[in-house]
Design a protein around this nucleic acid. Structure first.
Lengths: 194, 194
DNA sequence: GTCTATAGGTGGATAGAC
DNA sequence: GTCTATCCACCTATAGAC
């Protein structure tokens, strides 16, 4: 009972590492950073994640899983395509408001320095996000709720890449409003009023 | 005469460092990497750029200057807004085709680990790019050549952030076509056919 | 599961000879 | 302007006691 509120150590390591990667990047954080925050020794972290690459792999898996859960939750709660896409954008906005970059966007920048296995995970993440968006865009247009010219899959890719880029650039301004301007423009571009 | 074809050492250091930052990031390259490529010693690099931050600062300055020269060149050679914007997108496409990320986009990802002075430089780069685009978009729409709904400055920001994001994500796929799809969609969105 | 201790390497940076 | 030599901090990772 005394430990019921405390997450297992492995999960707490992942929590701290996640924030570190999202703010500083994979190559700019160390086991020492985690050890200080968690107030254990570096060696103890290696017990849970033998190599840094193991930690990174698990980090992406967990992020991907949670992202998909969030998307499924959007699908369940709101059948309206406009509302779904607003909530989709809100996920990115919330991450940025917490002073973070998307985990996969950050790792994408460092792609040339990461194990090959991780490249595959990143691709899967972006593709899965597009795959979630595409049918919503398609059916939304069919029902007359949304309006855009090209293929739904193209529009999905624009949304994913533009939101990643807007986060990236907005962070250099330290201004969520910078992101919001682009996000609103993206939504209005498919017929969703701000 | 014998050395007329060889750039000064400082410039060659910048050339190598530029590629390293654009491919690996600021935190994943070292003076040792440059030394090996240039076949001189690490200490010699410190003679030209005492600290790594000095190198980074000069790197952004040079990139920004050259980018602006490229934009001015577009302005001189083609009065047609459609043609200007196609050539604008082509600049990003060329960088990606050389297996690089935009230097400033890469540094933007690492923003939390960089000297504060560099944050200002990055902001200046993105803002200058938007400032170059905005009047072209405005006059292009006035003349009936371009077509979009909101403020020209908003459209400019969408273009800059979306192109950065498209480069970022496309690099994780190792596929320029991934970028091209988004780029074409961005252009068609303002009335420029592929 | 956490600790101490340490290995073996690399990071940025400096002093001083040539 | 380039070199050798060196510093010290930090890195990832391992061995073995508790």
């Amino acid at each position: 009972m005394a430990r019921s509120k405390r997450a297992k150590t492995a999960e707490r390591i992942l929590d701290i590492a996640e924030r570190l990667v999202q703010t500083r990047g994979y190559n700019a954080f160390s086991y020492a950073d985690i050890a200080v925050t968690l107030r254990i020794r570096k060696a103890s972290i290696h017990h849970h994640f033998p190599a840094k690459a193991d930690l990174a792999k698990r980090l992406i898996e967990r992020y991907h899983e949670r992202f998909m859960v969030a998307l499924e939750s959007i699908g369940l709660h709101s059948p309206d395509p406009k509302r779904r896409l607003r909530r989709f954008v809100q996920i990115y906005s919330d991450v940025l408001r917490d002073d973070r970059m998307c985990l996969c966007g950050m790792l994408a920048a460092e792609i040339d320095t990461l194990p090959h296995q991780i490249r595959d995970e990143l691709r899967r993440f972006f593709s899965a996000t597009e795959d979630w968006l595409t049918p919503i865009l398609a059916s939304g247009r069919r029902s007359g709720s949304l309006s855009f010219a090209g293929a739904p899959a193209t529009e999905a890719r624009l949304l994913v890449t533009a939101l990643e880029g807007a986060m990236l650039v907005a962070r250099s301004y330290g201004d969520v409003g910078h992101f919001a301007l682009v996000a609103d423009r993206l939504l209005s571009g498919i017929g969703i009023a701000a």
